[in-house]
Computed example of a mutant assay.
Amino acid sequence: MDRKEMLKSTLPPLAKFLPPPSIPPAKRGRASFVPEPWNLYFTSQRKVTVGKNIFNVYEKGAEGPILLMVHGAGFSGLSWALFTNAMTSLLICRCIAVDLRGHGDTITDNDEDLSAEILSTDLADVAQFYLSDSTAPSIVLIGHSLGGAVCVHAASRGLIPGLAGLVVIDVVEGTALESLSMMESLVRGRPSTFPSVENAIEWSFRTGHIKNPESARVSMVGQLKPMMETSDDAKSQPDIRQTINTTETIMEDDSEQADSQVSSAAARPGTRLGWRIDLLKTQPFWQGWFTGLSEMFLSCPVPKLLILAGMDRLDKDLSIGQMQGKFQMVVLPKSGHAVQEDQPVKVAETLASFMLRNKIVSSAGEFPPVFPGC
């Protein structure tokens, strides 16, 4: 694979729009593309209010260290659904998946400012809420792609008290910066709207955006919003998130409520579904997300784990750091960019071994150890 093709593999896929399914997804005999509700994977959904900002988080687990999980650009906290199920079956821990500013169901006073400084401060605010809401547990930051960069920025700025570990999934400074030259064309190559949730889920799976169909069924719901077609252009309907109570609330496992969340994303007659966030508008922040990332990661004084989809992601600084034993690295080569969605059990086993080896957590059961290596 040449360098250009390798860089493309680290970014959202460039793919043709798929037409509406001709037969019901449930009757296809292969993967079903019917969306799944969040409460099949998480036990509660919480609105964490910090000033004028309301951060949407999904939770599972009642005790143990907190795994604070941060998704990539364009994704949402639902990206961690299958991983959370696997992780809580292995370890005694609390899994907290947050929707970043401008993503998912989070509402802030400025959804347009996605600078590394703002996003890492937001993450610290959410972390502080959970630290003050319990008996000062330790926290492990886990981030995928942009989320990995946000975790590194927060850790390097010393914003997370009780930080016990740092896990970064498929983001490396050198490769990320080289990929930016192609990012705009790749983002523009995606369909701008979909006729249904099922069609969006099928596109996601067929193009490799998310290779695991089960994960796509829950994750894609958090990436979309209803769009009203007009004679001029596609304009947003009134934001369904505006119905959220602006006080702190906890929504426990409620199948009707979770089903209603999925239904709210379904297109009504005359509507289509568009992306929750316009990634092209985040272009001014791309350089800031990744510049200096390797040095910041290596300098964080906590146990560190880097999970990659391929060895070709590694840059010079991290290659040297890995040989010097400054962090653990594991490669899961059968994954696409969304590693934790494509291979949630493998990622959970890798992280469980990492945490047990570093005495961060207690085991919730027996599982085969995953040894460091490539």
Rank of each mutant, 00 (worst) to 15 (best):
L180H: 02
P137T: 08
M227V: 15
V98D: 03
F129R: 09
N212Q: 09
I160W: 08
V187M: 07
L119R: 08
S185K: 14
A127R: 04
R190L: 02
F129S: 08
V218Q: 06
M228H: 14
I142H: 01
V126C: 03
S204V: 02
G102Q: 10
K211N: 11
G158L: 06
I107G: 07
V126H: 00
D133F: 03
H144S: 15
S215L: 08
T207W: 06
M228A: 13
I107K: 11
D170Q: 09
E173G: 02
G102D: 12
F129M: 01
L186V: 11
S215F: 02
H209Y: 15
P226F: 01
L163W: 00
L146G: 02
A124F: 04
E202N: 09
S115L: 04
V172A: 13
H153W: 13
A127H: 07
Y130Q: 03
M228K: 15
R94W: 02
V152G: 00
A124P: 00
S181H: 12
F194L: 01
S204Q: 02
L159D: 06
R101M: 03
D170N: 05
L159E: 03
C93M: 05
A124I: 03
L163V: 02
L131S: 13
A176V: 11
V172E: 10
G104W: 01
G222D: 10
V152W: 01
E229M: 13
L90N: 02
A116R: 11
H103L: 04
A164T: 07
I118G: 01
V172K: 06
M220T: 07
T175C: 09
H144W: 11
Q223Y: 10
M220G: 01
S185C: 12
D125K: 10
Y130I: 01
D113V: 09
P161H: 12
L90P: 05
L123Y: 05
G102W: 10
